[in-house]
Design a binder for these strands. Structure first.
Lengths: 221, 221
DNA sequence: GATAACATTTACCAATCGGTCAAAAATACA
DNA sequence: TGTATTTTTGACCGATTGGTAAATGTTATC
C-alpha cells in the first residue's frame, strides 16, 4: 500500500505508452462519438448513446475518456487536420481560377465523404463555437490569412476579379459544406433521381460555372 | 362537482378566444424559446432555461404550451412565413439578374435582422429536420419548384447563364445564411474592424459580383 | 503458473430532465 | 361587492442525465 505508482490517475494512462486495446477502443469510441455528436449536437448527445454505439458499457467508455467534453475535444483535435487539408493544398504557384476550381472540387469531395465531420463543425459553430474558439483563433486564422494574401496577390496581378478575399473563401465554404450540412433539405427539395444519382456532380458543374465565370479578371470593375 | 365544463383540457383554451394575458405570455415564451433553441438546439435546450428566459416559472410556462415540442412547433409554424418572404417576392416579370440581386439583398437582410431564426432552421435541418419535414415537403417544395420554373424560363430565353436552377437557389441560400449561421466563425476570422463595421456591406458587394458576373448569359457554354 | 497491470462490469450516486398536481393568487365580470 | 374564471405557484414525480466506487475478469510478462 506504499505509494509506488497507484497515485497516478486511474484513467487511461496519459504518459505511458498506449496498449493495443487502448488504441482500438479509443478509436471505436471516437467513431461512435462522431456519429452521435453530429446527429444530435454536443448537448443533445448522451454518453449512454455513445457507449451503446461503440458497443460497450458507459463505465467502460469512461475508462478511456474522462467525460463528454473529453471526447468532443479529442474529436475536434483530430478532425481539424482532415478538414483543413483542402485549404492547405491551395497553391499560390498555380493558375488562380484552376486553383479555385480544384479547391471547390476538394471541398465537395469532403462534403460527400465526410458529412458527419462537416455537420459536427457546423453544429459547434452554430452554437457559438465554445469548444472551437481556441483552435479557430490560432491555427486556422493564420492559415486563412496566408491564403487571403495569396488571393490578394492574384488580384493585384490581374489574374482574378477584384473582390474581398475573405468573403470569397466564405462563399466557397458555405456553398460546398451546404451539401453535407443541409443534406436533409436537399433530399426533400431535389427531384428524387437528381438527389440520388447526381447531386454532387450537378453541384460541381454549377459551382464551376458560378465561380470561374464570376471571378474572371475581366469582370472586375 | 357535476361535470359542467371542468372536463375540458385545463391547458390554455384551444377553442375559446384568447385573453390579453394569454397572447402576451405566449409571445414572451416564443421569444424566449427562439433564443434558447437557436443557441443550444432543440435537444440541448431545457424547459427551465426557456422559462427563466421568459421570466416565469416552469409550471406557468407549461400552462401555455403543452411541452417542449409544442413550443418548437409553434415557433416553426410562425417562422416559416417570415423566412420564405424573400423567395415569395422573387418575381418572374423582373429583369433576371436584377431579381437575383434583389433576392440576395433580401436574404442578407434576413441573416442580419433575424439571425436566431436562421440558426434555428439550420440546427433543425442539421439534425435531419425531424420537425420540419412535413412543412418542407409540402409548402416549401411547391414554392421552390415554381421558382425553379421561372429561372428555367429565363435561361431558355437567354437572359441567364444556363445552369441548374436548384443548385442556383441552394448557393444563394448557403452564401447568405452563412452570415447568420456561422457568425461565430466570421467573428474570429475576419479582421475586427471589418467584422464590426462592414461585414454585411462587404458580403453584399462580393455576392453581387459573384452572382451577377457568374450568371451573365454570355457566360453560358 | 504466479503476479502485476490492464480492462470490464455491477451497482450506485446526486443532479437534472420533462412534466404533473392541487392549492393559492390574481383577474374579470355581475 | 361577490363569485366564477384565469393565472401563478410550490411541492413533487418518475425517468434520465453525467459520472463514480469497488469488485471482478482479462492480459501480458516473468
Amino acid at each position: 500500500m506504499l505509494g509506488t505508482s497507484e497515485t497516478m490517475k486511474p484513467r487511461a494512462q496519459s504518459t505511458r505508452r498506449k496498449t493495443r486495446i487502448q488504441r482500438e477502443n479509443r478509436e471505436r469510441i471516437l467513431e461512435a462519438a462522431l456519429d452521435v455528436f453530429s446527429s444530435y449536437g454536443f448537448r443533445g448527445a448522451t454518453v449512454d448513446q455513445i457507449a451503446i454505439a461503440a458497443g460497450m458499457s458507459k463505465p467502460n467508455l469512461l475508462y478511456y475518456f474522462s467525460g463528454k467534453e473529453d471526447m468532443l475535444q479529442g474529436l475536434l483535435d483530430r478532425l481539424l487536420d482532415i478538414w483543413l487539408a483542402p485549404l492547405r493544398k491551395f497553391d499560390d504557384r498555380g493558375e488562380p481560377l484552376t486553383e479555385i476550381r480544384n479547391y471547390i472540387k476538394r471541398k465537395l469531395d469532403m462534403a460527400r465523404d465526410y458529412p458527419r465531420e462537416s455537420r459536427l463543425f457546423a453544429s459547434e459553430i452554430l452554437q457559438g463555437a465554445p469548444h472551437l474558439k481556441e483552435l479557430l483563433g490560432a491555427e486556422i486564422k493564420q492559415l486563412i490569412d496566408s491564403k487571403v494574401d495569396v488571393i490578394q496577390k492574384w488580384m493585384d496581378q490581374g489574374k482574378l476579379a477584384r473582390c474581398n478575399p475573405y468573403h470569397l473563401l466564405f462563399s466557397i465554404w458555405s456553398t460546398t459544406q451546404h451539401y453535407a450540412d443541409f443534406d436533409a433539405q436537399l433530399k426533400v427539395l431535389l427531384p428524387a433521381e437528381r438527389y440520388n444519382d447526381s447531386r454532387f456532380e450537378d453541384a460541381e458543374q454549377y459551382l464551376d460555372l458560378l465561380f470561374v465565370q464570376g471571378l474572371k479578371p475581366e469582370n472586375s470593375k
